[in-house]
Design a binder for these strands. Sequence first.
DNA 1: TTGTAGGCGTTATCAA
DNA 2: TTGATAACGCCTACAA
Lengths: 354, 354
Amino acid sequence: MNGRKNGNKRITLKMIAKIVGVSTMTVSRALNDNKHVDEGTRRKVRETARELGYFPNYIAKSLVQQRTQTIGVVVPEIAHSFFAQAVKGVEEEAWERGYQIMLTHSAEDTRRETHGARALASKMVDGLIVSTAESGSDVEFFKSLIKGGLRLVFFDRCIYDIGASCVSIDDVDSARRATEHLIDGGYRRVAHLRGSLALSIGRNRLRGYRDALAERGVPADDDLVVETAIHEHGGYEAMKKLLALPEEKRPDAILAVNDTSAFGAMMAIAEAGLRVPNDVGVVGFYNDVRADLMPTPLTAITQPAREIGKIAARKMLAHIEDDSLPPENVLVPTELIVRASSTRDAGSSPAASI
Amino acid sequence: MNGRKNGNKRITLKMIAKIVGVSTMTVSRALNDNKHVDEGTRRKVRETARELGYFPNYIAKSLVQQRTQTIGVVVPEIAHSFFAQAVKGVEEEAWERGYQIMLTHSAEDTRRETHGARALASKMVDGLIVSTAESGSDVEFFKSLIKGGLRLVFFDRCIYDIGASCVSIDDVDSARRATEHLIDGGYRRVAHLRGSLALSIGRNRLRGYRDALAERGVPADDDLVVETAIHEHGGYEAMKKLLALPEEKRPDAILAVNDTSAFGAMMAIAEAGLRVPNDVGVVGFYNDVRADLMPTPLTAITQPAREIGKIAARKMLAHIEDDSLPPENVLVPTELIVRASSTRDAGSSPAASI
DNA sequence: TTGTAGGCGTTATCAA
DNA sequence: TTGATAACGCCTACAA
């Protein structure tokens, strides 16, 4: 249970000092490229350090310097492509600046998110990059972290106005554009599989959807807004609810909060004997690899995950370098990738056939 | 550049001690559920700790206890589904035991792998879980880490016989079964898109492929073994080389070292005007989500990534708990998922039509 | 039950 | 150029 295997004591500055016959400070200076060291001494120190296989103890260094060169990262699901890409972006940017990342996933669970963040804070990360859990976040806890001096940057799923930066797409505008695309394509009863209102993406995409309806003069129908979990089964279940509506109330298009739920919805649509896009148009968010491979390729708003991760990391490093830097909400541009799932064959839609 | 924001000093045991009017040791004991503390004292300490928003400094704790409750992880590509899943498995298992993970990716590069591992070792991780880079590994470096007392567990891509544990599928046997499946399906000129020989998976899968040929009495042809990078473009390029062979030498089946290169190969096959599976059968490794979604679904050997990650983490925790535990090579069972890419229509193959 | 002393491995600071 | 000393925040060991 102790740190090292029996016998193999880790080499320390003190050991090298004893061998070379100088003080630990001289060794420290020699190894850290400090100018005020005799070249001969430096050579000797370097050599024995290499021979002994010395490498510095960053824990000790961190304790005295009060920084760990480590960034904590909390994501809801490591294995989801979007977050995996984002984490990669963070890691790349951190690596280039000599930082490591400490990764925790919350499994979309509030308690795990809080515990994970607390654990990383206890390990004295220089900052915390977080994307919040579907089941909601303990806002007061994050506030207290900030009050305690911890730097905090959210990405994709943010908590606003508590003094943290946020890096995300413009969810409202993106959802509006996607909805307008459906309406302009002749769809009249556009439904929204919305995300949890505990998530910024859930609230903002819902708002964009509603804005689009209002702007296009399409009457809003609350029956057409159904909550979905962000996974495939969630989309499937939510879609079944919509399909259970009386015929005249059923949607002819779906704006899904993300690709995964859109895939689930497409399954439910197929099971009901309906077809995409002629009976039901579908649009998702993210642009998953599968979007292009589905029997009917999926139209989607892109979320440049890796880029978002990179920007979040850069933002964090900027905050670390300058603690007086004010928090900022960074919006990353998106594109609407139009594929077959939202473009009816000419003349084949009920609406178009009027 | 200093650790905390201006003014907001982190709360320490000493501060709590001063406020409550006891020694730091009493505070430490009270907060760590030590029995020998008066209940009244404990209550007071707990209360002020909570009020002040205290949480322990694990850096200091780690320094004195000589363990960090942190496991380092080095993977070649965070964003590849296999590794993302594996990392998730590691994180889950670590989390349950109160460990965090520190994640680095090598980008398939030897130098980054070495630097990353060294950085994590410097941060005093209690152990290192590694999957090696395509460009090869600095074996001597890993040996020196082990000699220095660092616990090391490889997964998927291992370095054998240096005193580290390894968790992977049985690559030799899996490749043999996949190759036999192709031969038994009537394919006669089975080629292998092999991985780098710097990787255990590259060497082992090649061996399994050769074993199968030998066992089935199929003559081996070195022209049919071509190296591929593990990404899509690699598979595409490698396949083009095979298709450039004189007609009578061309393969009628491909064992690809992984799914991604198999997808690339399938693109090249389609571009050449050939068809999967009737002209060319294809088998991959991993069972990516895309396998089922391709125009011709891909037959593949499964690699239970998350499970592999979990087992690797458990192995690491076992090594941490008991330093005398000998290293072990753990083999995780696989399945061959047969899909359309390796099953010719009856009577349509040149071989079957004889 | 509580406190004191010392040290984990490193660096900042000041003195030589 | 080098070294002695103290400190980072906590815990182990021992003493009271």
